[in-house]
């Protein structure tokens, strides 16, 4: 038993495939719970800062691009739909359809990043980047700077997660196209889907906080 190679060891410490799949999915949910707390710090920081600088946050919130933000929300929600379709295709064993939906999801993710990158570029030109290029000189400048600090940290961290997600999806699409998954075994796609939907949910909170609540 011990004489077996290490690669055989990892494959066989589960009793059966079902146990392996349940364990993997459960592990992913717990990982997502840690992510909630990871982002939670920033949401707590946003709440406290907003209470302390209510006026400044309203002023600052008018400097984000609500149109691009809304388009991006639509793009990301659509990508969640295509991801769900990819998981569905995977679970019934439609290999090519699964790969195609995954590719579409990744493309939508890249589109989101492109739009977000353009927004950041505009912010840079307007001098709204705290610490690096902050030229805002209106009332409540420190509070406005805090708003944009949180804006960049939170959308930046979100974009980082999205980038990782796109890379994982690209790998999954490749594997799916090569026929590595079947109706019996497609756990990695389910896990990728869970992660992708989580990123989507984070954005659903970021969008109103940075684009909507200050506008009336």
């Amino acid at each position: 038993m011990a004489a077996e190679g290490t690669s055989a060891m990892a494959a066989s410490h589960f009793a059966d495939a079902e146990q392996r799949e349940t364990a993997a999915t459960f592990g992913m949910w717990i990982f997502l719970a840690t992510e909630v707390l990871f982002f939670g710090v920033l949401f707590a920081g946003y709440t406290v800062s907003r209470v302390q600088h209510a006026e400044a946050f309203i002023l600052a919130g008018r400097h984000t691009d609500v149109l691009l933000g809304s388009i991006n929300t639509a793009v990301l929600l659509t990508s969640s739909l295509t991801m769900a379709l990819a998981v569905r295709a995977g679970s019934v064993g439609w290999r090519r359809s699964c790969a195609a939906w995954l590719v579409l999801t990744a493309v939508l993710g890249v589109a989101f990043l492109a739009i977000k990158g353009y927004e950041w570029h505009e912010d840079w030109l307007q001098g709204l980047v705290p610490g690096l290029r902050f030229a805002y000189s209106g009332p409540d400048a420190p509070g406005v700077e805090l708003f944009f600090f949180l804006y960049f940290v939170m959308t930046g961290l979100h974009a980082l997660h999205l980038t990782i997600g796109i890379l994982v999806i690209a790998v999954m699409a490749l594997l799916a196209a090569r026929g590595r998954f079947s109706a019996a075994y497609h756990t990695p796609i389910v896990l990728t889907g869970l992660y992708w939907h989580f990123i989507d949910v984070v954005w659903i909170f970021l969008y109103p906080l940075f684009y909507l609540v200050s506008r009336s």
Binding site: E35, L37, G45, F134
Partner: peptide, 22 residues
């Protein structure tokens, strides 16, 4: 609990590097 510490420490590092923070 640990993710909360991780993010808090990251915010310290950013605040120290860029001179902005919460």
């Amino acid at each position: 609990a640990t993710p909360v510490l991780a993010m808090t420490l990251a915010l310290i590092a950013i605040e120290r590097l860029l001179g902005v923070g919460i």
